[in-house]
Amino acid sequence: MNLTLHVWRQAKASAPGRMERYEAKDVSPDMSFLEMLDVVNEKLIADGKTPITFEHDCREGICGSCGFMINGVAHGPKSGTTVCQLHMRSFKDGDELYLEPWRAKAFPVLKDLMVDRNAFDRIIAAGGYITARTGSAPDGNAIPVPKASSDQAMDAAACIGCGACVAACPNASAALFSGAKISHLGLLPQGQAERERRALRMVAQVKAEQFGNCTNIGECEAVCPKHIPLAVIARMNRDYLKASWKDRGAVKQDESA
């Protein structure tokens, strides 16, 4: 099949960008979306043009590297699928596709479809962990964890940090991402000691990164390749409001807040 692509091209973060039109010819329905772009790029290189830059690594939907908008939907039309796992059989001959990078102030475009998502790392660094010095852990079975809690924690922990939630959100909010980590750790007994501090610091960092605020719209949940539920945001709100209201010094003044 043949497709028409409109791709955002931007040479670097500080350069202006624009949409450019490309033809993708003889696309096999068995190709993944990224393989289709590989073929387009091989042709561009042969023609002496600059290939399209896009982020990718594992190409099996788990590393979270890939992702861009296809016709206004993060990761494209198939639910629960990253672009690397999206296959061309989801499209039909003659389709016209618009490819755009994630758009958010916190995710500046580096080149073409590639953005900088280090804001996510800084949110994790602010509190998305359980402090357990190497070597200090008690036996793995010392603290039983109810299966339901463990399963729910796993649901939240499945987040791959791709950024689709932010890209899809009309507010460019990172609530699903931060809520997922706060839920994952907050649901486990091991995560209780730092629960208040975690919520306070992570939420403060989300704001410092200039993500938008959540207004419970639900676009994020719909595009999340790992089906992280909106419930994680409610849990973050609860943890944050509680910790913030109590304000019992879980976060020292000089540590932020």
Binding site: A137, P144, A153, L188
Partner: peptide, 18 residues
């Protein structure tokens, strides 16, 4: 032990053990 302490959500049985 280390990974459990870090919050790795390993599969568990109904009794709460790994």
């Amino acid at each position: 032990d280390q990974c459990v302490a870090q919050g790795v959500p390993f599969a568990r049985e109904y009794g709460g053990l790994l």
